[in-house]
Simulated scan of single mutants.
Amino acid sequence: MLILPALKRLENLHVFSVAGISSVSDDFVVEFVARLGHNLQELVLSDSTNLTDASMKAIAEVCPGILALNLVNLIKLTDSAVGYLANGCQALEKLILCRNTFSDEGIAAFLEASGELLQELSLNNVKKVNTDTAISLATKSRKLQRVFGCIQITDTFLNGHSNAEVKIVGLKMTPLLEHCRVLIPDNPFKY
């Protein structure tokens, strides 16, 4: 909370991370987005384990244009959190939900309401994700380019979806970096 007055001067702040800072509270997030959320494009809250749905409600109300949100390991979040995001953050292109307890129905409802622009989704260790999410991915997330860590995705989905641009990273027995494109400069020794 003591850093908020200093942050207030950063009127054009677009990317903000408090990753791994366990002392970050809902009060901080609510106050931060109230002061600086209007220009925010990317917010990283991973491993800020004290955060609850109250933070997501504040983000949804103040940051409708946010493009990327990292919510890794925020175990106090419930399906209400993704409900707030679905209703308020409709511009999301990248959503990282690893190691959370969201339900299959909650993730599917988010995708149904707000998955149209989503390009990247990470569901690694979201153990309840299942059929509803897969159906919503297939029908609503047409711009999705990458899904990571969803072990419930079946061969039927992998071989039967209609979006050739979708890259599913982390399949069993496939090289992890297979999806990466490496650009080799014309002259690698030129600085």
Rank of each mutant, 00 (worst) to 15 (best):
V30P: 00
H14G: 10
G160S: 15
L137R: 04
N70D: 11
N50M: 10
A86H: 10
S122V: 00
P185H: 03
Q145W: 07
I75C: 05
G65K: 12
E105Q: 15
V24A: 05
C98V: 03
I153S: 05
E116K: 15
D132C: 12
G65C: 13
L92I: 13
H14T: 12
Q152N: 11
I3D: 03
A86M: 13
L183K: 08
L137F: 07
L67V: 09
S136R: 09
N50E: 06
L158K: 07
S103E: 04
S141E: 12
V29C: 10
G115I: 00
L4Q: 02
H14M: 14
H38S: 06
H179V: 03
I135L: 09
L123C: 01
L117P: 00
A34D: 08
T78I: 00
L4C: 01
A109Y: 00
E116S: 14
K172S: 14
V82C: 09
V147I: 14
G149I: 02
P64N: 06
K8W: 02
C180R: 11
T156L: 14
L69F: 04
L69W: 01
K8N: 05
K94T: 04
K57A: 02
L74F: 01
Q41E: 11
L45Q: 00
V129G: 14
L95R: 01
K127D: 15
S22I: 12
R35F: 00
M1Q: 12
L177P: 01
T139Q: 08
L158Q: 01
K143D: 04
A81G: 06
H179W: 09
C180Y: 13
T49P: 03
L7K: 02
T78P: 06
N124D: 13
K76S: 03
N124H: 08
L77R: 06
E105C: 13
I66Y: 09
D132W: 06
G20M: 09
G65E: 15
N159P: 00
S46I: 03
I153T: 07
Q145N: 11
V62H: 06
A138M: 10
L36N: 15
D47A: 03
E93Q: 06
H38K: 09
G37R: 10
D27I: 15
L95A: 09
